[in-house]
Computed example of a mutant assay.
Amino acid sequence: MEANQPESVIGGKSFTAVAVNCAAKAGEWIKSKIGSITQLDTKYSMQDLVTEVDKGAERMIRNLIGTHFPTHSFLGEEGVEPGPEASAKALQDVSNAEYLWIVDPVDGTTNYVHGFPFYSVSIALAHRGQVIVGVVYDPSRDELFVAERGKGAYVHGRKMQVSQEATLNQSLIATGFPADPHVALPANMKGIQALAPKVRNLRIAGSAALHLAYVAAGRLSGFWEMNLSAWDIAAGSLLVEEAGGRMSDTVGEPYQLAVRNVVATNGRIHGELLGELQVAANT
């Protein structure tokens, strides 16, 4: 490992092992609570839901991480006020942290509430602003996606590789419906309208973290969405990069934690997808 890269252990404790353990335990507990939700609230909009399960899972993950790494910083979705401004400020407040855990305890809460089995636990660890560990766990399928910077990305213990499609018309692309109905949703709808006739098909399944994991696994050729937060993207970004894909914002700048409008692809179609999105944005 290069001198400027952090070791993946502190005091004999592996970052990745802790992230995997947290995701597995939280995922098992989340799955056990299906159908027993007693408190359902809205946050930023009526599409932005939170339950006692989201909050309980985040407490569980935070406590487990704190047991192993009490000096590390923590950024979790449920500890931040709703809305894009609050999300950006929360990230800014911890931007100088040496080690920062970035957690979405239930990515896809709306799916979870409705019993639609496409939701995930997303856990990332950033070292001085760069993601070095990414774990996305799908409790419904018991699929664990894991990446360490410089060591590849894996699912079911098998190394992942992005898909080989070379053009948009061969590609299966995913996106989402942002919770912000005023700016991000109309912008994303422009992209959907422009891209639908030009791709093999579009999918909108409701978990950005899982969509990114699917890009890494070669199940999707690409993914884009507007107005996401660091906890939606951080873990999945490393999965994509370590599987040979490319991450950027919607104008092509490299991904970093503050990016909210994200594009992830197998790399081969990245320029074409960016071009179509930029044309759509200007119409």
Rank of each mutant, 00 (worst) to 15 (best):
S8F: 14
T16W: 05
V20Q: 10
A24D: 08
K25F: 09
K25E: 15
G27P: 03
W29Q: 15
I30F: 07
I30G: 07
K31F: 14
K33N: 15
I34M: 13
T38P: 04
L40P: 02
L40H: 06
D41R: 08
D41T: 09
T42E: 15
M46W: 01
D48F: 06
D48V: 02
V50E: 11
V50L: 12
A57N: 06
I61P: 03
P70G: 06
T71V: 08
H72I: 09
S73F: 01
L75H: 00
E77P: 00
E77R: 00
P82H: 06
P82V: 05
P82M: 04
P82Q: 03
S87H: 02
S87D: 04
K89A: 10
K89Y: 04
Q92I: 02
V94Q: 01
N96Y: 06
Y99S: 05
W101V: 01
V103W: 03
V103G: 07
D107T: 14
D107S: 12
T109C: 07
A126E: 02
Q130F: 10
V131S: 00
V135F: 12
V135W: 03
V135E: 11
D138V: 07
L144M: 06
E148D: 14
H156T: 12
H156M: 10
R158V: 11
T167R: 10
L168T: 12
L168Y: 14
L172P: 04
A174C: 04
T175R: 02
A179H: 11
L185Y: 06
L185C: 08
P186L: 14
A187D: 07
N188S: 08
N188Y: 01
I192M: 08
V199R: 04
S207G: 15
A209E: 07
L210Y: 11
L210W: 02
Y214C: 11
A217S: 15
S221D: 08
G222F: 04
F223E: 08
L228H: 01
D232E: 15
D232G: 05
A235Y: 05
L238S: 02
L238W: 05
E241P: 04
A243T: 02
M247N: 02
Y255M: 03
Y255A: 04
Q256Y: 09
R260I: 07
V262M: 12
V262W: 13
A264Y: 10
T265M: 05
R268Y: 07
H270I: 08
H270Y: 06
L274A: 09
L274N: 10
N282F: 13
